[in-house]
């Protein structure tokens, strides 16, 4: 659907050249929610602006739905942009227009006749849950509502792609979640491809199917969100994963666990995807003559299933514990014995 090849952007300043995006290659499938995460200065903002040529690339190509954006003339680009929606961190609404008229703006640009425009605006207002606020001005809306207007506006011309530039970074956690739910909803209902950039791993975890990690203008790691969560390779990726998971190995509570449980075994269970839906713990205690005690852990949900770590203390007959371990190994849960102080 979207293929990006050797994309490079160099900014020339007085004293030096800054390479914001450096020979970046990326392929994005139709209908997926693709997240790009990186710290500020990683080049992600420039990257997303290159996709609809709000910034012109220095070299490389961007192809969206078989149309090569990077080789278009001004007029073709304008028409292509009408099929690429974009939402922004600071919403960028026209304060002089009401909600209704803000949403109608891209339709005016696309020269849709007035009656059709009104019907379409009505649909969009309902889609983003702003019914009853049509005649309000942006200054009368909350941040979350403003972003809903932004989303409705971006969807007005039925785009194939939605670009989200830090769309939730200016919102509080609760509002962020409601906007993310709306994006997932739109992705599922309209089959829209969504590309979002963010510095919050929470956003990636909650709605993305695939993720790319950017550092110094390059993609240093990419893949399914779950894989990246499970096996972060680069230090920067690990840091992002720790943002939502905490770092269980370094948690000081492990010391306490060792102090308090002198007998039996402490197991670390690593849940990836599907298995979280099974009632593993209750199965174990039913099938084997062991006592299980959940000590510590965190499970989190991603678009492709759950992911997390659980520390359990097992007490019982040595053989029985080993049989239980073997049983766990047959599921998709990874198990590991934490060296115990006997």
């Amino acid at each position: 659907m979207i293929s990006i090849k050797e994309l490079t952007k160099v900014f020339h300043t007085k004293d030096q050249d800054v390479t914001a995006v450096d020979h970046l290659d990326l392929n994005i499938q139709s209908g997926e929610i693709y997240g790009v995460i990186g710290y500020s200065g990683a080049g992600k903002s420039t990257f997303i602006r290159l996709l609809n040529r709000l910034e012109d690339p220095t070299s490389g190509s961007v192809t969206i739905d078989k149309q090569e954006i990077t080789s278009m003339n001004k007029n073709d680009l304008r028409l292509a942009r009408q099929e690429i929606g974009m939402i922004f961190q600071h919403f960028n609404l026209l304060w002089s227009r009401t909600v209704k008229d803000n949403i109608a703006f891209p339709l005016e640009i696309a020269k849709m006749p007035k009656e059709k425009r009104e019907a379409r605006v009505k649909e969009l207002v309902e889609l983003v849950g702003l019914k009853g606020r049509e005649n309000a001005y942006p200054s009368q809306l909350s941040g979350g509502q403003k972003q809903r207007v932004g989303i409705a506006r971006a969807l007005a011309n039925k785009p194939k792609v939605l670009l989200c530039d830090e769309a939730t970074s200016a919102l509080d956690p609760e509002t962020t979640d409601s906007i993310l739910d709306l994006l997932v909803d739109i992705n599922e209902k309209l089959g829209l491809t969504i590309i979002l950039i963010t510095h919050e791993m929470h956003v990636i975890r909650k709605i993305c199917h695939r993720v790319a990690v950017m550092e110094n203008g390059k993609v240093v790691e990419q893949g399914d969100v779950l894989d990246v969560f499970l096996h972060p390779k680069r230090p920067v990726t690990k840091k992002f994963v720790d943002q939502v998971m905490g770092d269980p190995d370094q948690d000081h509570s492990l010391d306490l666990i060792h102090e308090n449980y002198k007998s039996g075994k402490v197991l670390r269970l690593h849940f990836v995807g599907e298995s979280t839906n099974q009632a593993l713990i209750s199965e174990l205690s039913r099938e084997f003559k062991i006592d299980l005690n959940i000590l510590h852990g965190k499970i989190t949900q991603t678009q492709k299933g759950a992911y997390g770590t659980l520390f359990v203390h097992v007490e019982g007959d040595q053989d029985e514990i080993e049989r239980a371990q073997a049983y766990i190994q047959d599921t998709s849960v990874e198990v590991e014995v934490i060296p115990n102080v006997q």
Partner: peptide
């Protein structure tokens, strides 16, 4: 940002001048 948003919607320069900047 508002001008950028108008550009991202595919607005012509004349639209940006009359419907965004002056308005």
């Amino acid at each position: 940002g508002v001008v950028e948003a108008a550009k991202s919607m595919g607005a012509k320069n004349s639209t940006i001048i009359f419907k965004v900047l002056l308005k």
